[in-house]
Design a protein around this nucleic acid. Structure first.
Lengths: 225, 225
DNA sequence: GTTTTATCTTACCCATGGGTAAGATATCAA
DNA sequence: TTGATATCTTACCCATGGGTAAGATAAAAC
């Protein structure tokens, strides 16, 4: 286990006072848990780790959550809510399919730089119980279908070049989801910078000039075109 | 723990005979281990699980590997070798930067549909010891730098539109790495189909028409352009 | 055959960590 | 002040799973 370090200033303050304030304490638990899950993964984060960072003991956590998995599920839910909000905002302001996709990329990229948003894609669904698992899975499927419909819409209205919507959506989603694997809050790249560059790269492509032929077969390695 | 199912025909045959043939037995262990790691994750796969699928018992595994982590590390190494080979093939046949990137996308996408290749990106590096961790990390960094250099080369020779190579490389790598999260060997999409579509989507972009202005600021949600 | 060696099994050890029992201590309402 | 309640701690239980010890059995060497 290599990485540890970084003792966050954290929300330990929430438990300094023993005054009854369950809401903010619960929130503090979730924030530090999410932080630790992202640092060390869910499986390698013990409830003792969470408690320790909050300056309390493990059993105290059970006042706010039924078990470890409920903490995980809450992280997922808070994250998916962020995505939900972004999607609603996009749906409200309509435009061409391409514009919707652009808005999606921008919003989604930003969500992937927020801890709870990162949890949604970076943590392992397999750690959830089967009911929670299907809940999260259905939600993700919904997002994917939403993006795919934007692409289809763009092909219809002519703003997007003909392509396989399923695969195109996977490519976009992949690029975006991967952000939460390499993004670091203290890093050189700001969320907005990443988001806008992603919009450009994914919609405009790398190539300087549009190719004349629409589709392309398998690339012949080293074929000089 | 939701998903189990799929009792693979597997390489249980390798241990049917007790004849001394360490090489193929070791290979059988690796293949079934990789399979299980991808199905259930490394953490949720016990050595008993691996042994059971091979019709042997746990301690027998210790004849071929020092410990569980060594099995994991071997999966990583076999996977990175696949990528290495692909990269060498590309480096050998030179062309424009864009052509190299295209070749990279195509080869890499294919590797992501092979079990050992999937292991490299899908399994959790955090399960490795610190020395193995840095080994794998350095290797991944090397791949990333290689891709980034292709992009930079393309910008130089004019085949790729000006952009931030670091972010562009991340976008491409993300889309590709994500393949191993959703690809299923028995699924509707073939590896080649995915690979060639990815080449098109990533290099040509979604948009039907090239935008006149090169860079783009943050998208105004719902702004009618 | 007999010995040697690789292979594999049964039986076990023990550290980790989720979860609980039972009681202490502070807060709040009266 | 006093009881009731929420909050938190110390001490514990126990299932899981990596790893080992010691011995059985079969293959190869002689």
């Amino acid at each position: 286990m290599p990485k540890d370090a970084v003792v966050s200033p954290s929300h330990g303050k929430a438990f300094a006072d023993r005054r009854r304030d369950p809401a903010t304490k619960r929130e503090a638990v979730l924030k530090t848990a999410a932080q630790l899950f992202l640092e060390k993964s869910y499986g390698r984060t013990s409830l003792n780790d969470v408690a320790e960072r909050l300056n309390i003991t493990k059993p105290a956590l059970y006042h706010y959550f039924r078990n470890k998995e409920e903490i995980l599920l809450e992280c997922y839910r808070l994250g998916t809510n962020l995505i939900e909000e972004a999607l609603n905002e996009i749906a409200a302001h309509c435009g061409t399919g391409l514009e919707k996709v652009e808005a999606f990329i921008y919003s989604y990229a930003n969500v992937m730089t927020v801890n709870f948003g990162r949890c949604v894609m970076r943590l392992d669904e397999g750690d959830l119980s089967s009911t929670a698992f299907t809940e999260v899975r259905n939600y993700k499927r919904k997002i994917d279908r939403r993006l795919r419909s934007f692409v289809e819409e763009g092909i219809q209205d002519g703003s997007i070049a003909p392509c396989e919507p399923k695969i195109a959506a996977f490519a976009i989603a992949g690029a975006l989801n991967w952000i939460c694997e390499w993004y670091e809050p203290q890093g050189a790249l700001s969320a907005e910078e990443i988001a806008s560059q992603f919009v450009r790269t994914l919609t405009q492509g790398l190539a300087r000039n549009k190719r004349r032929n629409g589709a392309r077969g398998p690339v012949n390695l080293g074929a000089q075109e």
